[in-house]
Nucleic acid binder design. Structure first.
Lengths: 339, 339
DNA sequence: CTGAAAGCGCTAACAG
DNA sequence: CTGTTAGCGCTTTCAG
């Protein structure tokens, strides 16, 4: 049960360590027979290359760090699945780092990834500004390529894959208006996050065309629980909006639960539209009208861009910035009202 | 922008590398002042310890491998969140490895984890038997502790945290019987997986007490898509069961979608119960009766057991085997019928 | 085609 | 309290 290293194999075969290394890593410079013999005994002995040694020697580790708010929830896990799909076959592993949308935890994770000598980082940053200098340091001083997805940090010059949040919100509001709604509320994603700010801002731009009371706008904290609470307090107002925009799919879940608990009928008592689709949105009664992103696709694209950056590290100035459109899906969670 | 290593710091301060190492790792044997000075300049210079070097030197890496069928889906991501909760604060990182329930991919991931020198592995194995000898080799030859969760591999002697699948199925069937159902079908999780086999087997034990036609039992492949297809083909039978057990929450989603697409009314046309709860189960119309696991809890327990194994590596014989009970939740997806 | 040698950055005896 | 030394296992010149 002794540890099997190159040296052990080399001694067993009476050759040198470097030859064994070359044979096993598929490098040229070993006769075919010798190579096969080496491969055979490596397998027989149960040799597993030591990634820490390789990593130390080469300064690279074949691992990609992924920073994201949370593992649970449909949206990010779909994204990660997409990333994994493109990266796994190329031999890369993912190191997933949940930040809980806490900039300090995010910073700790970033430092950890630096220590790990990751070859690249994919990040949906916790906060729009908090770790700006750390991110810049990673890119410039450490030379680790970063691609942001879903969210970004202002002032950090790098590639990103975002969704057109403004357009998404506009599609939602315009639709509601077309159905006669003029009094609209919103439960938006966590304040401080890129998506939270962007979606809220886009919504508030309608303040001259529709009625938006301050009490109709709540921070749903991006979570089921937050959406649940926000809806409860919003629906308690005597003067209610006729329609509500919910800023992501987790919060929609919470809102629906709250509506059920309080016997609020959708769309009769209040109309509802959601940013993000989800498998269950179509099954609910009523099915939820929404604008849909394609998280799996986001993952694929983001990973592909990183790969490209890692390959062509020369073209320093090049930036790939993608902004994806959402898809509007009309279902039955909005009723027509008189202006 | 040169790489900052212990050596750089040492030279800058005119001390030796080992002193710097001791100071930075909090080991005794450095005067308080010197230590502070070292810590200060390390920070000023932007020093990040090289995990590959530390890992190589110590043979340990502070990382835990997690093998699981998939990242997406509520169940496993909740489990992982639980694991992360206990492991992160102790300085461990998780390396998540999706297997897609494919034993070959699983084997590749395991070998990768060995190479990575992980300190422990948490696994929901892809197949009940496929990688038995590899798992045993990891435990015995490599000395890497493993804890199985949700599923296990037969014949691999190690700790595990499972759910009482048999009891869960029994509660479901008994409940259906109490509502008068005697013709029951099942859409079970992927054949070959521990949970798939266990839940199916438990169900089939009722074959003398209720009617179970062969066409009423389908493999839903553990996925939404699989559940969707299975339900479609099942409901097409002229002779249908009066009630259906769906073997996990992803498949339930698919079944509900199919029911909607085909205008099959639940519970009027067919009654439904589900293994696993989910946030949305309560919101659906009708809300779904089910037996619930607590995935977050599973994660916490599994991680805790692994931690314990890593600490007390001496007690080789000790095994912690947990079997968790499910919680029955009655909602409205089953109607009473006449026996 | 093959071998010898020099480290990658860090830790852990062992001396002093 | 601090420094010196010897590697961890691997890759990569540089010779032959």
């Amino acid at each position: 049960m002794n540890k099997i290293t190159l040296k052990v194999i080399a001694e067993k075969l009476g050759v040198s360590v470097s030859t064994v290394s070359r044979a096993l890593t598929g490098k040229p410079g070993v006769s075919k027979e010798l190579r096969n013999k080496i491969i055979a005994t490596a397998k027989k002995l149960g040799y597993y290359p030591d990634a820490t040694a390789t990593g130390l020697r080469r300064g690279k580790t074949m691992t990609i760090g992924v920073l994201l708010p949370e593992l649970s929830g449909d949206f990010f896990s779909q994204i990660v699945t997409g990333m994994e799909k493109v990266l796994f076959h190329l031999g890369y592993r993912l190191m997933l780092c949940p930040t809980d949308d806490d900039p300090e935890k995010e910073a700790a994770q970033i430092k950890m990834l630096i220590s790990q000598k990751v070859e690249g980082i994919l990040s949906a940053p916790a906060d729009m500004k908090a770790n700006r200098s750390l991110y810049s340091q990673v890119i410039n001083d450490m030379g680790i390529p970063i691609v942001f997805f879903d969210r970004l940090v202002e002032g950090v010059d790098t590639d990103y894959v975002l969704t057109d949040n403004e357009d998404g919100i506009r599609q939602l509001v315009d639709y509601l208006m077309s159905k006669g709604h003029r009094r609209i509320g919103m439960i938006h994603p966590l304040k401080g996050t890129f998506t939270g700010e962007a979606r809220l801002r886009a919504f508030l731009e309608y303040k001259d065309r529709i009625e938006i009371k301050e009490e109709w706008v709540k921070d749903g904290k991006s979570s089921e629980m937050g959406g649940y609470e926000a809806f409860k307090s919003l629906i308690r107002e005597k003067d209610k909006p006729t329609a509500l925009i919910v800023g992501n799919n987790l919060m929609t879940l919470g809102v629906l639960k709250a509506a059920r608990d309080l016997s609020v009928k959708i769309p009769d008592d209040i109309s509802l539209v959601s940013f993000d689709d989800a498998y269950w949105n179509e099954i609910f009664d009523p099915p939820i009208t929404c604008v849909a992103q394609d998280p799996h696709q986001i993952g694929l694209i983001t990973a592909t861009i990183l790969l490209d950056k890692m390959k062509n590290k020369r073209e320093k100035g090049k930036r790939t910035n993608v902004v994806l459109k959402v898809r509007f899906i009309e279902r039955s969670s909005v009723k027509k009202v008189k202006g």
